[in-house]
């Protein structure tokens, strides 16, 4: 295999060039996540015929259309359910689900919960931009308190949904959250998530200057991207400050969004257990047949 070093070669391998340029707005973070996924796939050297992308509805769900591989563009929120079906049909496939925060946490919440509980072998890349961007800026369940949206013109009073905490509680094998402005940690994380057997969730905080930034007065693209740098903190630093820091420091970091790897465990996945179950039953059946003879 030829080793790819530049973005141009990467584009030639992974992109459906006829579909480009993307429909994403100027300054949107979705394209960056797509690129990180490409680099992760390239570094792993996976066969693209054995990788299937699934997505629901929304800005993030346009992503499989830009990739030169098999993809499934499904109904709103049901991407994970369809992905489970693909995995059940042929467990050799690597499944990557691109989903947004409204798609995964809002409308497809139950599908997400039960896929994580069953520990089905797939990688869910949830791109969180705090808003339903494509349909015109309705309030998403992950939006921070006080954020303005078309359905919350006086500020959000609902508490936001921390999807990483939920996935940790359900016992997903790999849970991580990253921003889009720092390339190397997310690429490494996607690689680890793809290599894991079992459910892995990667949440990306992607800027949405058009629907979220504009309504919330976060400034232009430059300032909006800087907002994500200033309002996030690494989980290790957060824990250190919360244990040893002074009151002042604690006050400063209290409301910041934590980034990092939250869970990295090794539980058997659903299809591993299922194969074992089938083997056990086959053995049992063989024994009973011998007994009858």
């Amino acid at each position: 295999m030829v080793e790819i070093k530049t973005a141009d070669e990467l584009n030639k391998k992974f992109l459906r060039e006829g579909m480009w340029p993307t429909i994403f707005c100027n300054g949107c973070g979705h394209g960056v996540v797509l690129e990180y996924t490409f680099w992760a796939l390239e570094e792993l050297g996976l066969d693209m015929d054995k990788v299937i992308f699934a997505s629901g509805i929304g800005c993030s769900s346009r992503l499989p259309g830009y990739i030169n591989a098999d993809g499934l563009h499904t109904t709103h929120g049901r991407a994970i359910a369809f992905a489970t079906g693909i995995k059940a049909a042929d467990p050799d496939f690597h499944i990557i689900v691109f989903t947004g925060d409204g798609d995964c946490a809002g409308i497809g919440g139950n599908h997400f919960i039960h896929a994580a509980r069953r520990n089905i072998d797939m990688t869910v890349i949830m791109i969180n931009n705090f808003i339903y961007g494509m349909t015109g800026g309705q309030l998403a369940p992950t939006a921070p308190l006080g954020s303005v949206a078309t359905t919350a013109p006086y500020g959000n009073i609902e508490h936001p949904f921390d999807i990483c905490d939920l996935a940790c509680a359900l016992g997903a094998n790999y849970v991580a959250r990253w921003g889009v402005s720092h390339p190397y940690q997310p690429i490494k994380s996607i690689k680890e998530g793809l290599q894991k057997k079992g459910f892995s969730l990667l949440e990306f905080l992607a800027p949405c200057p058009t629907a979220y930034g504009r309504r919330n007065k976060l400034g232009d693209i430059k300032k909006h991207w800087a907002w994500y740098d200033d309002n996030t903190i690494l989980i290790e630093d957060y824990e250190k400050i919360m244990t040893y820091g002074s009151e002042e420091e604690k006050e400063q970091v209290k409301d910041k969004i934590q980034l990092g790897v939250f869970q990295d465990i090794q539980k058997p996945g659903f299809f591993e257990s299922y194969e074992k179950l089938v083997d056990r039953l086959k053995e049992k059946e063989a024994k009973t047949k011998e007994g009858k003879k």
Binding site: A7, P21, C28, V32, E35
Partner: peptide, 14 residues
């Protein structure tokens, strides 16, 4: 960094 961060994958560094 510009190559990796470009949202439209338009930059190649050679």
């Amino acid at each position: 960094l510009c190559e990796l961060i470009c949202p439209d994958l338009a930059i190649t560094v050679i």
